[in-house]
Design a protein around this nucleic acid. Structure first.
Lengths: 211, 211
DNA sequence: ACGACTCTTGACCATTTGATCAACATTTAT
DNA sequence: ATAAATGTTGATCAAATGGTCAAGAGTCGT
C-alpha cells in the first residue's frame, strides 16, 4: 500500500526528477490551453508518463496547477524587488523594463500562465495578490515617490507606472500572436527593448514641459 | 421537422430577442471562464433558457462563441479608425487612449473575451488579425510616421506605440483583479485616464532631450 | 378557427475526463 | 539476497458535458 508522503520527509531521486518533468510539461500545456482546457492526459503524454503515474505524484489536477503556478510567482517578483532607491531612477527603471522583457521573451509560457490565472479572476492566487504583491508594490511605489520628490522623475502615479510596465512588457508574451500577425514577424527583443524603454520613460511629446 | 434557417430569410421577433439574450449571457460567461471553461448549461441558466432551446438558436457551442466574439471585434476597431492625420497628434492620441479606456471600463468583459482568445493562440480570429487588424495598424502607423516627420512627435516606432496603448488600456480590464488587489480599491476612470495619458505621451524623464 | 410554422423541453446518448485501485515492477537499505 | 518501500500501469468508474430527438406548446397569417 503506497503511503502518500504527507510532510515529504525527503524526496527521492526519481521523485524530484519526475516532479520537475511534470511541472515543465504542465507549464507548457496549462499556458497554452488554460486550466479547464488542459487534460491530465495531455500533460502525461507531454512528459512521457502514464496518467495514473502522474497522479501518483500530484493527487489532483489542481495540485499540478497550483504547483506550477507557485513556481512562476517567485520568478515574477524578482525583477521588481531589485529596484534600488539609491541609484539613478532612469537607469533603474530601464534595467527593470529590460529584465522584465528578458523574462517575457525567455519564458512566454510563464507569462501566459499568469495572465490566464488573473484573467479568470485569480482564483488560486488571490492571497498572493493581496499579500506579497501588494506589499512589494507599496514598497516600490514609495521608492518612486522618493525619486519624484528629489526631482529625478516627473510627477507620476507610481502604481500606474508599475502597471504600465507590467502591461507593456507582458503584452509581447500574452498577445504574442497578435504582435506577430500585425508586424508580420517575430519581433526582435533588442528593438522591443529600445521601443518600450523609450515610450515608457521618454514619452512621445516633443514639447514636454519640465514640470 | 424544424428546418434550420440557412440564409436566415427574416428574423422573427422571438428570434432576435432570444439571440440577443444568449449573446449577452454568453459574453459574460465566456469572458469569465474562457471557452473550455464555459458550459452550455451555464449560458442557458444565465439567460433563462433551457439548453436544448439555446441549441435551437446556435447549433454548437462554438457557434455561440464565434458570434459573440465577432460582435466585439467591430467594437474593438472603431476607436483606432478614428485617428485623424490632419489633427494634432497629441490631441488625437489622447482622445484615442481615453476612448479605449472608456471602452475598457464600460465593457471589461469584452476586453477579457478578446484577451482570452488571443492568449490561447487566437484560433478563431487568426483571419481577423492577419487581415483587417494588420491593415488598420499599417494605415495608422503611416499616420504616426507622418506626424513624426512633421516634428510633431518624437521619433517612435508606431507599431510599438499602438501595442503600448493597447496593452496599458486593456490591462485595467484584463488584469482588473490584480489592479484592485494592489491599490486596494476599484480605480477611478478619470485618475486612470490622466495617469495613462501622461505616462504614454509625456514619459517619466524630467530631462528628456528634444530629439 | 385552423393549419403551418416557430418555439420549447424532458429524456436521452456518446464522449471526455478526473480520479481510483489492485496488481505488478523497480529501487533501496540492510 | 531479501524485504520493505517506492514507482508504474491497465482497467475501470462516476460525473460532467456537448449534442440529439420526438413530442408538445405557442404564435401567426388567413
Amino acid at each position: 500500500m503506497p503511503k502518500r508522503l504527507a510532510p515529504v520527509v525527503q524526496k527521492t531521486r526519481i521523485q524530484s526528477q519526475n516532479e520537475a518533468l511534470i511541472l515543465d510539461a504542465a507549464l507548457d500545456v496549462f499556458s497554452t490551453y488554460g486550466y479547464r482546457g488542459t487534460t491530465v492526459d495531455q500533460i502525461a503524454a507531454k512528459c512521457g508518463l502514464s496518467k495514473p503515474n502522474l497522479l501518483y505524484y500530484f493527487r489532483r489536477k489542481e495540485d499540478i496547477y497550483t504547483a506550477v503556478l507557485e513556481r512562476t510567482l517567485t520568478l515574477w517578483l524578482a525583477p521588481l524587488q531589485a529596484l534600488d532607491a539609491d541609484k539613478d531612477p532612469i537607469e533603474e527603471l530601464t534595467r527593470y523594463i529590460e529584465a522584465k522583457l528578458d523574462l517575457t521573451f525567455a519564458r512566454p509560457e510563464a507569462s501566459k500562465l499568469f495572465a490566464n490565472e488573473i484573467l479568470h479572476g485569480a482564483p488560486h492566487v488571490a492571497a498572493f495578490l493581496n499579500g506579497p504583491l501588494k506589499e512589494l508594490v507599496a514598497a516600490k511605489a514609495k521608492v518612486i515617490r522618493h525619486w519624484v520628490k528629489l526631482g529625478k522623475l516627473r510627477l507620476v502615479e507610481p502604481e500606474h507606472l508599475i502597471f504600465a510596465i507590467w502591461a507593456v512588457t507582458q503584452h509581447y508574451a500574452d498577445f504574442g500572436v497578435q504582435v506577430e500577425a500585425v508586424i508580420g514577424t517575430k519581433p526582435a527583443i533588442e528593438k522591443v527593448k529600445a521601443a518600450v524603454v523609450d515610450l515608457l520613460l521618454r514619452g512621445v511629446d516633443p514639447e514636454k514641459p519640465h514640470r
